[in-house]
Amino acid sequence: MSAADAAGAAARGLLPPLGASPPVERVAAEERAAALGRRSLKRAAKVAGLRLAVRCMDLTTLEGADTPARVAALCRKAIAPGGAASDVPSVAAVCVYPSLVGAARRALAGSAVRVASVAAGFPSGLTPLATRVDEARRAVDAGADEIDMVIDRGAFLAGEQERVGDEIELVKEACGAARLKVILETGELGTFSNVRRASDVALHAGADFLKTSTGKIQPAATPGVSLVLLEAIRDFYFRTGRRVGMKPAGGIRTARQALHHLVLVKETLGDAWLDPELYRLGASTLLDDVLLQLEKERTGAYGSLEYLPAD
């Protein structure tokens, strides 16, 4: 798009005015996020936080080696993470590739655990638009309750923000009743101000959740970048009255990191977001560490992964 075209589009209200999103000072944002990592969470507060982390978890497997049997095992773990006899709550969702949505749907039948699917050209978001939209629709038809799509970062960085927004709208339309999580892939956006801008584009295009990363690119869900998304969600809520969810994903492996992310949302968006309807933690290996920590709080002694149900 030429500069003249861009000016014309802006005049018609199609383009967000340049600078409409507030700039973000990276050093200060990261400092604030790091400070929230120093909250001291002991005993009951720690247990409650860890149980919340489980309830908000999108238990994820996105590997070439995934099989229907492996997904079924993961689903059993999602329903009863600590084993049948444990009081550990179910996770929020199981997140798989579209080809395994059916397997997950069957394995989760009768439970409240949702099926989420990465779709729309994951993880690059660079396949033809029609293919992406179609893929999302098929995943929903196969039984996905939630779709995780990634934006075209190339288009965003080239300044074609309206195209990014339009594509999100089209995928959202294809999702029907399924909820749409928009992955910004913050590790490829260059600056925190860009992350904020991309957040605003996704929010206005109808995202149900903002999600930091695919997990395939580093850095992923750093506390700093997560804070930027949370602040965008907060401003959007005040502007529109709509509560959009948040999903940090990628690199969250320890219970301690999960608690840090929960503190970020608690002290930025408040109580309403401390709920799986509005908050998710995307993770593949986090659950085991959370279970170990819960067991340690229960018994006073650290356990071993060997005693946890294998997936």
Partner: peptide, 29 residues
């Protein structure tokens, strides 16, 4: 895309029904 008329944080509207609750849903000990 029905983006952002005026946009930006300066357009935030705060009213009684739009508020953040920093309560005790997950209290720190």
């Amino acid at each position: 895309l029905k983006l952002i008329e005026g946009g930006g944080a300066s357009q935030d509207r705060r009213s009684g029904e739009r508020r953040l609750e920093f309560g005790d849903r997950w209290p720190y000990e």
